[in-house]
Simulated assay, not measured.
Amino acid sequence: MKVEVDQTKCGTIGICVKECPEIFRFQEGSKKAVALMEEVPPQWRDKCREAARKCPNGAILITE
């Protein structure tokens, strides 16, 4: 599973950072989120999917 954050859609709300801090962080100098890794390890996939589901702007893109 791969994940990325669409920077044009990210609304700096931070739900992903709270839901799955193992994968998402705020960019330094910005409140937009970024994925720390492209390939999501199996143990964090459910949390990552939940973060994507909760993102109000649909900024988290997941490919299986």
Rank of each mutant, 00 (worst) to 15 (best):
W44S: 01
L61G: 07
V34C: 08
E19A: 06
S30V: 10
M1H: 13
E22A: 09
E64N: 10
V34Y: 14
K32E: 12
G29I: 10
A59K: 01
A52G: 00
G58N: 12
F26V: 06
G14R: 03
G11C: 04
E19V: 09
P56V: 02
K2H: 13
P41S: 14
K47I: 04
P21Y: 14
P42E: 14
G29D: 02
C16I: 00
S30L: 12
R45Y: 15
I13L: 03
T8S: 15
F24P: 00
G14V: 09
M1W: 06
F26E: 09
R45D: 13
E22F: 13
K32S: 11
K18S: 07
E4Y: 00
M37D: 08
E50W: 05
V5K: 00
I15H: 13
L36C: 10
E39G: 02
V3C: 01
E19Y: 07
K47C: 08
D6N: 15
A52N: 00
A33M: 08
Q27R: 15
T63F: 09
T63W: 07
I15N: 04
K47T: 04
W44M: 06
R49E: 11
C20E: 12
D46H: 14
D6E: 04
G29V: 06
M1G: 09
G14P: 08
I23L: 02
L61A: 11
T12V: 10
G11N: 07
A59P: 03
E38N: 09
G29A: 09
D6C: 02
Q7Y: 14
K9I: 01
G29C: 03
L36W: 04
I62S: 04
E64G: 09
C48S: 04
L61Q: 14
A52Q: 01
V5N: 01
W44Y: 12
V34P: 15
V3S: 00
L36H: 05
M37Y: 11
W44R: 07
K2Y: 15
T12E: 11
G58C: 10
I13G: 02
C10E: 00
A33K: 03
R53A: 11
E64S: 02
L36A: 02
G14S: 03
A52W: 00
Q43P: 11
R45N: 12
S30Y: 06
I23P: 01
G14E: 06
E64T: 06
G58H: 04
E64L: 02
Q27E: 10
C20Y: 14
T12S: 15
V40H: 15
G29N: 07
K2S: 03
A33S: 03
C48T: 06
F24D: 03
C20G: 14
Q43I: 03
A33Q: 02
K2L: 09
Q7N: 13
I60G: 00
I15F: 07
D46V: 05
V5T: 05
E22V: 00
K47S: 03
K54T: 05
V3T: 03
Q7L: 04
Q7F: 15
P21E: 10
P41D: 08
P42K: 07
K9P: 03
G14Q: 03
Q27W: 05
A33W: 02
E38P: 10
M1D: 14
K47R: 13
E22P: 07
